[in-house]
Amino acid sequence: EEHENPIVNLRAFSDNAAKVTAFAASYMKGLDAVGAISSVKHFPGHGSTKADSHLTLPEVSKNADQIWENELVPFRALCRQSDSVMVGHLNIQSLDADNITSFSDKVISGLIRKRLSFDKVVITDALSMKAISDEGKAGVKALLAGADILLVPEDPYKLFEALNKAYLSGIIREEIVNSALARQEVMAAKPPKDFFSKYGKDIIGCPEHKKFVSEIAEKCQVVVKDEYFPRKKIYYWEDGEKTQDLKGKIFAEELRKSGVSFSDSVSDCDCVVLASFSRPRAYSGKINLAQKDKEEINKLLSCGKPVSMICFGSPFAADDYLNGLKGLICSFCDLPEFQEKAAQGFMHKADLTGEMPVRLGK
C-alpha cells in the first residue's frame, strides 16, 4: 500500500486484500501438501508504514475499523488455516495506546485469540530488531500477552534471565509456560518424520524447480507500456552501486542473442534501457531509487531518445517516470530465467502475460 515502505514491498503478494488472500491461500496449500509449517505475518499489517522495524518503530495511523476492513482481511480469512501468526513490531494507537502490537494483550489475547478465535502458535517478530528497546521486558510482556515464541533475541541469555526472574517472582505463571509449550509441540509435530531427509538442501535449485521457474517466467512478468520504437542499438543503464559484472548480465546477453548492439553514448543509440534492481533489504531503511539514480534517470529521459524501463525488483521504482517512459516491463525479480524472458519480451520474441498485482503511480 505504501510505495516507500522499505521492508515489505516485494515481500507482499499485492496491495489488494482479496488478491493477497487468494495468493496466500494457494501458497499455504502448497506448504500443507508437504507438511511444511506456515505463518501469516506481519499481524495486523505492515504495508502502510514508511519505516523499517529493523531500525525503528513504525507507526500505523489508521483507526481500528479501517484496519479490520483492509489489513486484517487476509488474516481473518486465513489465520485459522495457518500453523502460526507472527505479530509485527508496530505502534498502532487505535489498537493499543500503551503497548506496541508484538507485546500487546489487546492485540494478541483480545484480537488474535478471542476475536479471530486463533488458538495456535503466536510468534513475535525478531526481538533483536531496533523497534524493541529492551528485549527482556518485551519478552516478558509478549509472553504475558499470549505469545508462544519469542523470536531471535539479540542476547538469549539476558532474555532467559528476564523470563526466569518473572517466573520465580510469580509474574509469569506456570500455566502460561505450559500453554506456550503445548502449542509449540503441536506445530513441531506437523512435518512428517522423513521431511528433512526427503526435502534436504539438495532440492534447492534442482532441475525440476529450474524448469518450473522457466515455465512461469513469461506468466509472471508484466508489460505495462510498450510503444513502438527501434531497438537495434541501445544505451543500457543500471541503478545502484556499480559492480564489475552487470546485475543484468543475463538480460544483456539475451539481447545480444537477438541481434542488439550496445552503445557507450546516448547520442549513438536507438533507445535507452533503464534496469532497476531495487528490493527490500533489512536494516537498509530505504527502497526504490537513490537520489543520484533519480537524477540520472531524469537526465536520460530528457535526452531525446525513447526510454524503456525494466524493473527487476520493486515495480514502484517506476512511479515517478510513467509519463516519460515509452516502455515498461515489471519482472519483480532478477532470476536468470526472468532476465532471459524479460529480454525476449522487450524484443517481442516472448509473450509476457502477467497482470500487475499492485497499482503504480503516486
Rank of each mutant, 00 (worst) to 15 (best):
S104M: 09
S61F: 08
G136D: 05
E69C: 02
S61V: 10
G88R: 07
D125V: 08
G110P: 11
A145C: 05
L95H: 13
S104Y: 08
E154M: 12
K114V: 15
V73M: 08
C79T: 12
N99E: 11
C79E: 09
I132Y: 09
V60R: 04
I108R: 03
R76H: 13
G136F: 03
S102F: 06
R80Y: 10
D155F: 00
L72Y: 08
S109T: 15
A77Y: 02
M86I: 09
K62D: 13
S94G: 14
G146T: 09
K62Q: 14
R113E: 05
R113I: 03
D125Y: 08
H89W: 06
L143H: 03
K130P: 00
R115Y: 08
L151Y: 01
V73R: 07
K141V: 03
K130Q: 11
I100L: 03
L150A: 01
V73K: 10
K114G: 12
D65W: 12
A145D: 03
K130W: 02
V107C: 09
Q93K: 13
L111V: 09
E154S: 14
D119T: 11
S61K: 12
K106Y: 04
W68Q: 14
L95F: 12
D148K: 02
L57D: 01
L116R: 05
G146N: 09
D65C: 09
D65Q: 14
T101S: 14
P74L: 11
A126I: 01
R115I: 04
L116P: 02
D119L: 04
V87Q: 04
I123D: 03
A145E: 01
G136S: 06
D148A: 00
V140M: 06
V152L: 07
G110N: 10
A138N: 01
D134T: 05
R113Q: 07
Q81W: 00
D98L: 01
L111W: 08
D119R: 11
D105S: 13
S94A: 15
Q81Y: 04
I149Q: 07
A138E: 02
V121N: 02
I112R: 12
V60N: 12
K120C: 02
I100F: 03
I112V: 15
I149D: 10
E71P: 04
R76V: 07
V85C: 10
R113W: 06
T124G: 13
S128E: 04
V87H: 01
L78F: 05
C79G: 06
S109N: 15
I112K: 11
L72I: 11
N91K: 15
S128P: 00
K120P: 03
D125T: 09
A142D: 06
R80L: 11
N91D: 12
G139Y: 00
D96G: 10
K62V: 07
I132K: 10
L111C: 10
S109Q: 12
F118M: 11
S117Q: 15
K114E: 14
K141E: 10
P74A: 15
A97T: 14
Q93T: 14
V60E: 08
S104H: 10
E71F: 03
L151E: 06
D134Y: 05
A138K: 00
S117F: 15
K62R: 15
I100W: 03
L150T: 02
P153H: 05
S94Y: 12
L95G: 11
N70L: 01
A97Q: 13
S94Q: 13
A131I: 09
D155M: 00
